[in-house]
């Protein structure tokens, strides 16, 4: 019988690099170049609209401008306010609802899947129908308020309320994310630990704070960090819901960057602001990555 000849054409090493190559090239081309160009442009006075005007090197002036600009600081303050409020509300709601979902009832899985859906929807569409529902005169929200005897609220026209309008919409969309992760965290806790606590006479609250919460903390922290990062860079929901308004009351840093770059076309300045945003996100992300790595090490130990 003739020996079957199956040529081993590629070594594992060759296969490995062959598999990695396209991804790497694409990422280098689509990430590294824009990144370098962002850094480069951030040192120039330059506008894509006036390409004929030569770019002028101005050092760190673009950065200095934003860091000393009151208006920009107010954008940061608003962004921070939004992030802290929205994320903490979603966190408590999410953990709470996931906890309630530990109760078994008919149709639990179906309903659980259903309430997770909002986070998968397009932020543009979410912004769209919340804008519709927040309408002062004929919106559903004010109608519901009137049912319980509350006066109509100018949700999108009053700066205080517009902050809350964005928080409500963001909470509607992203609480499911915390619910999903908290649920995963809770179901990862071995049943025997609860049984031990039952036998040891722990009450519901004692169990929650001494068993459930600390044991699900690693995953909950992941949820919190991801939500911080995502809500900090949130842009499209604002774009659709408030357009940054009224005036510039709900204009986040991302939004200001968008306007600087694509409404005023101050490319150089926008690049500098982009860099500032990037640095903050990279900072947050590296906390996240470091945390993940330390978790991985703990697990393998």
């Amino acid at each position: 019988m003739q020996e079957r000849k199956i040529p081993r054409m590629f070594s594992d090493r060759a296969v490995c690099y062959f598999f990695l190559f396209p991804t790497l090239v694409l990422l280098l081309f689509l990430l590294v170049y824009p990144f370098l160009s962002l850094i480069y442009n951030s040192f120039f006075r330059y506008s894509v609209l006036r390409a004929a005007v030569p770019a002028k090197f101005i050092g760190f002036n673009n950065y200095l401008f934003f860091l000393t600009d009151d208006y920009t600081w107010r954008r940061f303050v608003f962004t921070g306010k939004f992030v802290l409020l929205a994320v903490s509300i979603q966190f408590f709601l999410g953990v709470g609802i996931a906890y309630l979902f530990q109760t078994k009832f008919k149709g639990r899985d179906v309903i659980f899947t259903m309430i997770l859906m909002p986070m998968m929807l397009s932020p543009i569409v979410v912004g769209l129908f919340w804008k519709y529902m927040f309408n002062t005169e004929w919106g559903l929200v004010n109608y519901l308020l009137s049912l319980v005897g509350l006066p109509a609220v100018d949700w999108l026209g009053n700066p205080t309320y517009s902050l809350w309008a964005t928080i409500i919409a963001d909470t509607w969309m992203w609480t499911p994310f915390t619910i999903l992760l908290a649920m995963a965290a809770f179901s990862g806790i071995p049943k025997s630990l609860y049984e031990a606590a039952d036998v040891d006479g722990a009450s519901g609250a004692f169990k929650f704070f001494n068993v459930t919460l600390p044991l699900s903390a690693p995953v909950l922290i992941i949820a919190l960090l991801l939500r911080l990062i995502d809500s900090f860079k949130q842009f499209d929901l604002f774009y659709a819901l408030t357009g940054g308004g009224p005036g510039d009351a709900t204009q986040t840093v991302s939004f200001q960057l968008y306007k600087t770059a694509f409404q005023y076309f101050y490319t150089g300045e926008a690049s500098a602001l982009g860099m500032i945003l990037l640095i903050i996100i990279i900072g947050l992300s590296s906390i996240f990555i470091r945390y993940l790595t330390s978790l991985g090490e703990k697990q393998s130990a």
Binding site: S37, K233, Y258, T267, G274, M275, I281
Partner: peptide
């Protein structure tokens, strides 16, 4: 990192590129 990047920040460069 591609998942963490703020789209708006990179967009400035993408627009030019």
């Amino acid at each position: 990192s591609t998942r963490m990047l703020p789209a708006v920040a990179v967009l400035v460069s993408f627009h030019i590129m």
